[in-house]
């Protein structure tokens, strides 16, 4: 286990920001830490990073205490910014040195990552002369330039254009390939679906959903199929309701009816099936439903 959080609680006055939260992150996975605004994500991350201390509960990270693990963790905060009057490369090297990295190595790694993310010609520019998207990419590099084993990326895609979203996704994929562990926090659920192996959804400081993404999606899958066909015959067996949607039909199934039963019936009746799938449920919808139920 690379991170183990047990019964973590943090109060600010009367507000319980994190409430008896437990979860684990496995080495080498991309883990989604999700939740609505104010759910306690940042507070949780800050406790794991030893920026603030928990009221109760226990954290083991990279095999030790948060304080001991600090140099091996990278952090892209949601509330973020850079020194404005400093050159990009100097800034990256300084931040890496604060994490205990060697200056020469930090410099090399910084240049590599800058090239990777399309900013190699900006190494000697001052931060204030960069566009916002560029600054954001520099911040992503700043969080990984000291070669950490565990990286927290809090809203890394915020305000990026599609090209740069792809670049940052590429960085995450690279980290994944290198065997690093990434904890990703974002509101862009489509990216979570693409990137994350497992997720934790928290609301009001408590765990709402936790586990492998595929399992959670199965758990929330409606008992329905989606069929694309010119027209559907009435009275299909085991189908309770038919609803046209986006040029296709969503068919709600009766209990005990399997999707393949419906497909067989469609084929038997000679329907010109162009597409057939078990109705997908977007993570976004799961998120909204889980939070609403909580």
């Amino acid at each position: 286990m690379i991170l183990q959080v047990q019964h973590l609680t943090k109060r600010f006055g009367d507000l319980v920001a994190v409430d008896d939260l437990s979860f684990e992150v496995e080495p080498g996975e991309v883990f989604g830490l999700l939740g609505p605004n104010g759910a306690g994500k940042t507070t949780t991350i800050r406790m794991i990073l030893d920026i603030i201390s928990p009221d109760s509960g226990h954290i083991t990270v990279l095999g030790g205490s948060p304080a001991a693990a600090q140099p091996r963790i990278g952090y892209l905060p949601e509330e973020r910014g850079l020194y404005r009057n400093v050159r990009v490369l100097d800034l990256l090297v300084y931040l890496a040195e604060l994490k205990g990295a060697d200056r020469v190595q930090a410099r090399q790694r910084a240049l590599q990552w800058l090239e990777h993310i399309g900013l190699e010609d900006r190494a000697t520019s001052k931060v204030k002369d960069l566009s916002r998207g560029m600054q954001q990419r520099v911040q992503v590099v700043a969080s990984i330039v000291h070669d950490p084993d565990l990286v927290f990326l809090d809203e890394p895609f915020q305000g990026l254009d599609p090209v740069n979203v792809e670049r940052v996704k590429g960085v995450i994929a690279d980290l994944h390939r290198e065997g690093k562990t990434v904890i990703l926090s974002t509101h862009q659920m489509n990216l979570v679906e693409v990137l994350c192996d497992r997720i934790l959804l928290i609301n009001r400081g408590r765990s709402v959903l936790y586990g492998p993404l595929t399992e959670i999606k199965r758990q929330f899958a409606p008992h329905a199929v989606r069929v694309r066909a010119p027209e559907l015959p009435p009275g299909l067996p085991g189908v309770v309701a038919v609803e046209p949607k986006d040029g296709a039909y969503d068919l709600s199934l009766a209990e005990g009816t399997a999707p393949r039963d419906v497909l067989r019936a469609l084929v038997d009746r000679g329907v010109d099936v162009q597409a057939f799938e078990v109705a997908p449920v977007p993570l976004e919808e799961i998120f909204i439903r889980a939070v609403a139920q909580d």
Partner: peptide, 16 residues
């Protein structure tokens, strides 16, 4: 104050 205003500080105190 500048570090706080620009939010660099959040990164700094996760390191030192």
């Amino acid at each position: 104050a500048e570090e706080k205003e620009s939010r660099v500080v959040e990164i700094l105190i996760s390191s030192v």
